[in-house]
């Protein structure tokens, strides 16, 4: 069987910008498809089997392009004629998907749903995987490195007396004893004291298990119940790996937005980055609420009164007021007090 197709277009010779009006002859000889480039005014430029020719995948209505092994290029806008070759090119299916039609409405909805799922679950899964892959040595080193920086930049040695420290350490031992043995031995828990005048009454935890309390916190809130609840909260951050998760999550979101930015445009990229900043604050607030819950349960198990934490936030509220929540990394004091009340109500009466 002999089948011949001729397409009109232009040819280029390797390394030359000369645009040569030419035609492409496609013919079958002995079971193989052969292609020949014939310039209008010159002798045959190139001839090869279809198998040896690179065909650029279709892209919209842009000119179709073939490259022969000797570098000869043939280009045509005869899309109907070229369809004959498309059964041999990869990318034909992609091209069909890209055609304008009602199915694109479905794609658009799928994009919105996919973006939401990626943000809501995908990033968390990626972050959890990354946390699992982080070696314990590295996590311990994060604690050491961070403490070095803090000591260098903003902290002075604690001015607390031995009695004051021993008292806090006693409460700390009581609370941490309530953690399951497996959790306790998995990390290198330790409690440090620092004088940090610019930070006020505060406490924080590092991923490896290092926890820091400021002198101001212990001086202004000496109540055992307050200290126990705050320590419970910080232990929760460590056990649930909040710090590392947040680090990986924000890194992942940044890279993902940057990669997709080519497809969203610069303006939308800014909107996405701003939105991501607000959303990661909301993520941080969720972590704080979870840590409050975990910490209250832990300190309660250790025999301390959950009302202690409420006293703490009430004092903070009257001192600093209760600002709007959405641009803060922590929930508002009033929201936290409400959550504590809800927790106390779930406790069996003693």
């Amino acid at each position: 069987m002999m089948q011949q197709v001729t397409l009109n277009g232009h040819a280029y010779i390797r390394g030359s910008s000369r645009r040569i009006p030419a035609r492409l002859e496609i013919a079958k000889h002995g079971g193989e498809t052969w292609l020949r480039v014939l310039p209008e005014t010159e002798a045959e430029l190139s001839c090869a089997r279809l198998l040896d020719i690179a065909i650029d995948p279709a892209l919209g209505r842009a000119a179709r392009k073939l490259t022969f092994q000797d570098g000869t290029v043939f280009e045509t806008t005869d899309h109907a004629g070229f369809a004959f070759l498309d059964s041999h090119t990869h990318g034909a299916r992609l091209h069909r998907l890209e055609r304008f039609g009602p199915h694109l409405i479905g794609f658009t909805l799928a994009c919105l749903a996919g973006a939401f799922l990626l943000w809501r679950y995908g990033l968390d899964i990626l972050a959890a995987l990354a946390v699992a892959m982080t070696p314990a040595v590295l996590v311990e080193q994060i604690d050491r490195g961070t403490m070095q920086t803090i000591d260098y930049v903003m902290a002075e040695p604690s001015q607390l007396s031995h009695e004051e420290r021993d008292r806090a350490l006693g409460i700390y031992q009581a609370v941490i004893a309530e953690l399951p043995e497996a959790e306790r031995s998995a990390r290198d828990f330790q409690l440090l004291f620092r004088h940090m005048p610019e930070v006020g009454p505060n406490a924080f935890a590092l991923p490896g298990g290092t926890m820091v309390m400021t002198d101001a916190l212990l001086r202004e809130f000496p109540s055992e119940d307050v200290i126990a609840a705050i320590l419970g909260h910080e232990i929760a951050h460590v056990v649930e790996e909040h710090g590392l998760r947040r680090l990986y999550r924000s890194l992942g979101a940044y890279v993902l937005i940057a990669l997709l930015a080519g497809d969203t445009g610069p303006m939308l990229e800014d909107v996405l980055l701003e939105g991501n900043a607000l959303l990661s604050l909301s993520y941080s607030r969720t972590q704080e609420t979870a840590a409050d819950e975990f910490g209250l349960a832990l300190s309660h198990q250790a025999g301390f009164d959950p009302v202690g934490l409420k006293v703490f936030f009430k004092a903070l509220e009257s001192e600093m007021g209760s600002g709007s929540e959405w641009r803060s990394s922590h929930p508002s004091h009033s929201a936290r007090i409400e959550a504590i009340d809800a927790f106390i109500e779930t406790l069996p009466a003693r």
Binding site: L59, G60, L94, L97, E98, R99, F100, G101, L104, F107, T108, A110, C111, G114, A115, L118, L259, L260, D263, T264
Partner: peptide, 12 residues
């Protein structure tokens, strides 16, 4: 639009 939305969907 068709090419762009397919790009975006496959990237997501």
């Amino acid at each position: 639009f068709g090419i762009w939305i397919v790009n975006l969907l496959l990237s997501i």
